[in-house]
Simulated assay, not measured.
Amino acid sequence: MTQQTETAPDRIGIAEVIRFILELFAFVSLGIWGFLAWPGPWLNVVLCVATPLFAILLWALFRSPRAVVRLDAFGKALIEILIMGSAALAWLMLGQPIVAVVFGVAAAVSGVISGRKELR
């Protein structure tokens, strides 16, 4: 008779929920930036779609829990800083420095908390 071991399901805490919301906000922010920062009827629509899709692709390939390409902690942090920093910079370029600073600080704190959990 084989013995089955039960594994405890991964619990999703408040830090993970906040982190997910920050990721979604970053992707939406890049889409808003792509639409508002560029003139023209077609370029802004293309960038509104392409910019967040590129960020989502980077996140899925390198940073997500089921990433296709496994990176060390430094590589993961670099990808995260690139995406979250781009979103904060997008808000700054749109003339919203308060949103940029609040988002940047929240993303940095979330990244540090997540990084400490990963390094355990």
Rank of each mutant, 00 (worst) to 15 (best):
E118V: 13
V109D: 07
A15T: 11
L24N: 11
F20R: 09
V49R: 09
S110T: 10
L43E: 08
P39Q: 09
I32E: 00
S110L: 08
F25N: 06
T7Y: 11
L94W: 06
F27A: 13
W33F: 13
G95F: 12
V99K: 06
L36V: 02
D10V: 15
L92A: 03
L92I: 02
L24Y: 09
M1R: 05
F54A: 14
F54R: 04
W91T: 01
M1T: 09
F27V: 05
G13I: 15
A106G: 04
S29M: 08
A100I: 06
P97N: 08
E16D: 15
S29F: 01
P9I: 13
K76P: 02
L36I: 06
G111D: 05
V46M: 13
A107K: 01
E118I: 15
A67P: 12
L58G: 09
A26C: 10
V69S: 07
Q4N: 06
L30I: 08
E16W: 06
A73Y: 07
G115R: 01
E6T: 09
I113Q: 00
V101Q: 01
I113T: 10
T5Q: 10
L30K: 05
D72T: 07
G111K: 01
S64L: 08
V69F: 13
W33G: 02
A90R: 00
A8T: 14
V69T: 11
V46R: 04
I21R: 14
S110A: 15
E80S: 14
A8F: 06
G85W: 07
W59H: 15
P41R: 11
G40P: 10
P65M: 13
V102A: 15
A90G: 03
A8Q: 11
M84H: 11
A87D: 02
G115N: 04
V102M: 06
V99E: 08
V105W: 05
T7P: 09
R11M: 15
V102Q: 04
T7D: 08
L22D: 02
L43M: 04
L53H: 09
W38Y: 11
R19A: 08
V99I: 13
L22E: 04
R120D: 07
A37E: 01
V109W: 01
Q3N: 11
A73R: 12
